[in-house]
């Protein structure tokens, strides 16, 4: 499948009915989702026939993209039941099999996910005033669980911090692309409808692999 075709298929993924501000709910755009999964697949061969987990799956777009690129088994974790229902609906529209669990990633241990999941793809919450650092909690857990690699999006402003952490955790960290993420402004009082955030698309690789 070509990148263009993947992106155009992903246009059909439904977004959130009523996004929740506290959970930073906005769907990863088809453009970003396609770029992420296409790169993981064609450059690193981390998707086809692999066990792929999606941390904080939201409306499920990354899991669907993985499935379209022939991942063999998909697990998607999400804290919000409303989001999961949308993700489930999306997956059945696309006729893809994804196992969902309603999970708070912050509190769940990785003991039995470790080494069973090959690749983790995620667009973690970037963290706001009230949940600062949540992106790093997601990342740490993902790195702990993945056998091969983690693909994630992070604010470009945090790049040096992330590099430092990756070194500390003993994983390779490669910024694959700088992208613009059009994040809808959901807060009251904002004049603009949306704002472009610069994000890094990063691959973290386990060194033993």
């Amino acid at each position: 499948m070509r990148l263009k075709d993947l992106e155009s298929k992903l246009q059909n993924v439904a977004g959130f009915d009523k996004p929740k501000i506290e959970l930073e709910q906005y769907c990863t755009t088809p453009h970003l989702a396609a770029r992420m999964l296409y790169t993981a697949h064609t450059v690193y061969d981390d998707i086809e026939s692999k066990v792929v987990a999606d941390f904080g799956c939201g409306c499920g777009i990354l899991s669907i993209a993985a499935n379209l690129l022939n991942s063999s088994y998909n697990l998607a974790l999400e804290i919000d039941d409303d989001a999961l229902q949308i993700a489930k609906e999306n997956c059945s529209e696309f006729e893809v099999d994804v196992d969902f669990t309603l999970t708070d990633l912050i509190s769940i241990p990785m003991d039995h996910l470790r080494n069973k999941v090959d690749t983790i793809v995620m667009n973690p919450p970037f963290g706001t005033k009230n949940n600062k650092g949540i992106d790093m909690i997601f990342l740490k857990k993902a790195i702990e669980a993945a056998k091969i690699s983690v693909y994630s999006l992070h604010k470009s402003t945090t790049r040096e911090h992330i590099r430092k952490k990756a070194k500390e955790w003993g994983v390779e960290c490669e910024v694959l692309a700088e992208m613009k993420f059009d994040v809808p402004m959901m807060y009251k009082g904002h004049k603009k409808k949306s704002v472009d955030i610069e994000v890094d698309f990063i691959r973290f690789a386990k060194k033993s692999y």
């Binding site: 066990v51 669990t101 039995h112």
Partner: peptide, 13 residues
């Protein structure tokens, strides 16, 4: 949920 997923879940109380 399939048994693969169940094989990854534990109690975390």
């Amino acid at each position: 949920m399939r048994l693969v997923a169940h094989n990854m879940l534990q109690c975390h109380v």
